[in-house]
Design a protein around this nucleic acid. Structure first.
Length: 723
DNA sequence: AAGCGAACTTAGCATCTGCGCG
DNA sequence: CGCGCAGATGCTAAGTTCGCTT
């Protein structure tokens, strides 16, 4: 593997970064608000009833802001501002501990790796993409029929026999027209089939439509709402919205001004004229009875008998069976989210200006159905109509609607285990593998470009450097020049990192800052469109996020190689795996708040360990005495006793060690979330190969859902797979 | 060529589930 | 045989990218 830089332990397991970077509630105090400039008031889309005057105001305000910054030309700039990023350059002659030795307190807007995106399109047809993105050795086409290694080849559609794992569900599918085809009893290996090459996503698509949120059930009349101390009966519409608020009473955000203001405004819109006249001050509203009622309800639900619970479960299962699957091109596929999002109060992440707004109930009239012409089109609920039925096989969604908060479109799509998602995922990793082949060249080039006389090129090159390494790695070159990043990234997760950079990069950054106000764009000659065009020239299909995928996967592979020791037992190997995974998660800044129960659960585990230790010393003592006994008696029976004691000791030792490993793992994982990288950035074939190589059951690494998503990888990767 | 919207991926937290334990 | 917890799953917001439009 070529030019991957290796990380030193410090950086990977790194102390300060993680500690510094967990989210904290008051981050906005320091960071001001996440600036929601991107909010573009799309509400025009037929949701005018929710259009909110204050939104407009917000928008206008935004505009003004933009104006004076004179930086409003492109999207990435919006983003930069929005994030309120800062890069502080610090001259690190001052050692780490002296962090206030900033040479230059300049605050410059900058971007985290993925912020330079945004490309112009380059017409790359879907078709081409498909074909080229797969590495030839795994071209399904080839595999298509008979090939190969372990696969007991079978074409989908043949009669089955493999363990009918999914049989039950599969059976029913056949009710429709697909009957003839006889649905495969075994799992369908879509990865062995020919792919579409022309942007077509499917030929046949049939489904039952979405499941709507249950209608509102008015509160029993004994549950009162009080206004200004006096009980008040609300109209069902107003009451429903009030219950949304009541359900959140325990949450901190019901105390936030913006939240309350937005809620109150939207709530009033649902009120009758009289209600509106009466209820003019949210502070005078008392929702506690409602809140108590819901708490009681949820208690009651927990206390339900198991028959009742069973019944609910069965009902859910029925719904799943009916609505949770579709038929796409002769195969029954699982739908990811077949339930429409229920109404409620919007809670954006971070300091969202729209928090508290009413997210309205979606009705059939809001829904667009997508299915094939020759399918049985889903029926809208009696007495209603769909907004539209279309037959667009160039997209993958089955149902869509426009949401009223941001005006964006929401979709119902297939599960990650489906062919359509899996192929795309596979393709993503193939693109990253292609990057592997030319990453040295690309790196060499951007380093060269740091010296360019064209500002544009320099900026592009520095940006690319950050995209490549920054979030993902920090090289240790002398530590003489350090850049400090501090901004809010996706989901308002704080990104905080100090990165040693090469001198040239540092100097360039200083240059970029010359003659600029702290609020100006650091990369003023760069936008995502330029960058992306450039990337596209460097490698077909290259976009900024490919670097993330590549760096994540290559790091996993490297770390696995480095951390796995042949003579370790399985739990120890798994710890190594998790550590490798953790290195990636840290690189990608995948953090989590330490689980609320973390301390407690750690203590529990420690208690178990202590207990196990006691048990072990007991067992050892017994072994000893058995041995002594055997020495004297020398009969078969005592010999046997010694043997069994010995075994017991061994077993307990093993258990103890397992617990200890578990404790280590958990501790190290305190504020790291492994799931995201595992699911989205790590080529699953690396993990599968590792499992095969070391004889680790793949279940130890991937749970059921993950195995379903990565079925293709589990099936096709052998132990010498190399990313 | 920039701006926008559609489509699709990524993300962390909330809620649920089922299993091991007392 | 219920309880509590950890891990699994659900949910939906917030990203990226592409390509169309103007």
């Amino acid at each position: 593997m070529s030019g991957d830089h290796s990380h030193n332990e410090d950086q990977i397991m790194g102390g300060s970064r993680i500690n510094d970077s967990h989210k904290h509630k008051d981050k906005y105090k320091e960071h001001k608000h996440k600036d929601y400039k991107r909010d573009k008031e799309k509400s025009k889309h037929g949701n005018s009833d929710y259009k909110d005057p204050s939104d407009k105001k917000y928008k206008d305000k935004e505009k003004m802001k933009h104006k004076d910054g004179s930086t409003e030309k492109n999207k990435d700039k919006h983003k930069e501002k929005r994030k309120e990023d800062k890069i502080k350059l610090l001259n690190d002659k001052v050692k780490k501990e002296k962090e206030n030795g900033f040479v230059s307190p300049l605050h410059v807007k900058s971007e985290p790796e993925e912020d330079f995106y945004h490309s112009p399109k380059h017409e790359k047809s879907l078709k081409r993409e498909r074909d080229e993105d797969y590495d030839s050795e795994f071209k399904p086409k080839k595999i298509k029929t008979e090939n190969d290694k372990k696969v007991k080849k079978r074409k989908p559609g043949d009669e089955g026999d493999i363990k009918p794992k999914k049989t039950k569900t599969q059976k029913e599918v056949t009710d429709g027209k697909k009957k003839a085809k006889k649905e495969p009893e075994e799992k369908w290996k879509w990865w062995e089939e020919e792919r579409y090459t022309d942007g077509v996503k499917w030929k046949f698509l049939e489904h039952k439509g979405p499941v709507f949120a249950p209608p509102y059930e008015p509160l029993p009349s004994r549950v009162k709402f009080y206004y200004d101390g006096k009980p008040m009966r609300l109209s069902p519409e107003a009451e429903e919205v009030a219950t949304f608020f009541a359900k959140m009473l325990d949450h901190e955000y019901t105390t936030k001004d913006i939240f309350r203001k937005n809620f109150f405004k939207d709530w009033r819109k649902e009120m009758t004229a009289e209600e509106k006249a009466t209820i003019t001050d949210l502070k005078k509203c008392n929702f506690t009875e409602m809140s108590e009622y819901f708490k009681a309800q949820s208690e009651a639900r927990k206390a339900m008998s198991k028959e009742e619970k069973q019944k609910i479960k069965e009902e859910n299962e029925r719904l799943l069976q009916k609505y949770g699957y579709c038929i796409m091109d002769n195969h029954k596929e699982r739908i990811a989210n077949f339930r429409i999002e229920p109404p409620g109060l919007f809670r954006g992440r971070g300091d969202h200006p729209k928090m508290g707004m009413l997210k309205r109930r979606i009705r059939p009239e809001d829904i667009i159905i997508n299915c094939s012409k020759d399918s049985k089109c889903p029926e809208p609920p009696p007495g209603t109509k769909w907004k539209e039925v279309r037959h667009d096989n160039k997209v993958t969604w089955l149902v869509s609607w426009t949401e009223n908060i941001q005006g964006s479109i929401k979709y119902i799509m297939l599960n990650p285990s489906s062919r359509i998602k899996g192929e795309k995922d596979w393709q993503k990793y193939e693109t990253a593998r292609r990057l592997k082949k030319c990453v040295d060249r690309i790196r060499a080039q951007y380093r060269e470009d740091w010296k360019s006389k064209e500002m544009r090129v320099r900026q592009r090159a520095v940006a690319l450097y950050f995209i490549d390494k920054l979030a993902l790695r920090a090289e240790n070159e002398g530590q003489e020049y350090v850049v400090e990043f501090d901004f809010l990234g996706k989901d308002s997760i704080r990104y905080y990192n100090k990165v040693p950079v090469e001198k040239r990069v540092f100097k360039n950054l200083q240059l970029f800052m010359e003659n600029k106000e702290p609020d100006d764009d650091l990369f003023d000659r760069l936008n995502t469109s330029i960058l992306n065009k450039h990337l596209q020239e460097l490698m077909d299909g290259l976009t900024a996020k490919v670097f993330r995928t590549y760096n994540a996967s290559i790091t996993l592979q490297q770390q696995l190689k480095e951390l796995t020791t042949a003579d370790e037992n399985i739990p120890a190997k798994i710890l190594s795996y998790n550590r490798a995974n953790r290195a990636v998660a840290i690189l990608c800044n995948h953090q989590r708040a330490p689980p609320k129960t973390f301390e407690k659960s750690m203590q529990n585990l420690q208690a178990k360990i202590d207990a196990k230790k006691d048990q072990l010393s007991d067992a050892k003592r017994e072994l000893k005495s058995a041995k002594a006994d055997a020495k004297v008696r020398k009969d078969e029976k005592t010999k046997k006793a010694v043997e069994s004691k010995r075994k017991a000791v061994q077993r307990i030792e093993e258990q103890l060690m397992k617990l200890e490993v578990q404790a280590t793992d958990r501790e190290e994982n305190k504020q790291i979330a492994l799931g995201t990288s595992k699911l989205n950035y790590l080529d699953p074939r690396i993990s599968v190969a590792w499992c095969k190589k070391w004889g680790i059951p793949v279940e130890k690494i991937y749970n059921k859902t993950q195995r379903e998503k990565f079925a293709w990888a589990i099936d096709m990767a052998d132990e010498d797979y190399e990313f």
